[in-house]
């Protein structure tokens, strides 16, 4: 228990260093663009592929479970839309990204630590925590919500395609369901959640890598710790944010 509080304290100290005043904002601008490409843009493919299949699967499952003459077919589209917006495109996509992006960040920073690249920055007088971590946080917090939007769009398209291809319902009914009782706030809720999750994935993973010690084996362990820790924190904050934003 004491160790958990110690780790939280070290994490807070690191964040204090990360958000200290940057040496030269112009340098950070370039690094943010680089990280947006490395961490955000390069995750579009994975997000799109998973979303299209999940959208299709949700539609199929809904059609099986809502098979009743008393339940209108358009509710299948409605349920697909709500599932994608409220949970899949933010929380599940965040968990997937914590595996891809989180392990990438932890191993990159961990390798920099054990090969003395971070020491080299410190010797130069650079705030290494801010220089390395802040651009990643800004890049993911700005870009990951766009991945959520993309996931919602592609997931619902996946549902439409499977509805059309398998004849489980008339595509027009699916579209009717997509538009039924649409509340824009759900999108806002999803985007806020993803922005928070992006911060968690990046900061927790960077923390695990930044304090890596020893050899390449330790970098691997740091990478695993990053995925596990950020996934757990995401689930906790999912509960907190849902309670705060939806009730």
């Amino acid at each position: 228990m004491f160790k958990i509080f110690e780790q939280i304290g070290r994490y807070c100290q690191l964040m204090g260093k990360v958000f200290a005043r940057p040496e030269k904002p112009a340098i950070y601008g370039r690094r943010i663009m680089y990280e947006m490409e490395a961490l955000g843009f390069n995750s579009i493919g994975l997000t799109a592929i998973i979303s299209v299949f999940i959208g299709a699967v949700i539609t199929l499952q809904m059609s099986i479970n809502l098979e009743s003459p008393f339940i209108p077919k358009y509710l299948i589209g409605y349920a697909t839309r709500e599932t994608m917006i409220l949970e899949f495109s933010s929380t599940v996509v965040a968990l997937i990204l914590s595996g891809k992006v989180g392990s990438n960040i932890a191993s990159e920073i961990g390798t920099m630590r054990i090969t003395e690249q971070i020491d080299a920055l410190e010797i130069m007088g650079v705030n290494s925590a801010s220089y390395l971590i802040l651009p990643k946080i800004v890049a993911t917090v700005l870009f990951f919500p766009l991945l959520t939007l993309l996931s919602i769009v592609i997931g619902t398209i996946g549902g439409y395609v499977i509805a059309y291809a398998t004849d489980i319902m008339i595509p027009a009914q699916y579209v009717e369901g997509l538009l039924y009782d649409f509340r824009p706030y759900s999108i806002t809720y999803s985007l806020i959640k993803m922005a928070v999750f992006a911060f968690i994935i990046t900061s927790v993973s960077a923390f695990c890598g930044y304090y890596a010690k020893g050899n390449s084996l330790e970098v691997g362990k740091a990478s695993t710790r990053a995925v596990v820790a950020s996934s757990i924190v995401i689930m906790i904050f999912n509960l907190i944010l849902t309670q705060l934003l939806l009730t």
Binding site: M112, E116, A120, I123, M124, G125
Partner: peptide, 29 residues
């Protein structure tokens, strides 16, 4: 620290930067 230069055992060059970018980093900052 701005008056200190250090050469590490393994070089400690930034892997994601080219030769010129590595050497230019202190000047940029």
């Amino acid at each position: 620290r701005k008056d200190i230069g250090m050469i590490f055992q393994g070089g400690a060059l930034l892997d994601s930067s080219t030769v010129v970018e590595n050497v230019m980093l202190p000047l940029d900052l």
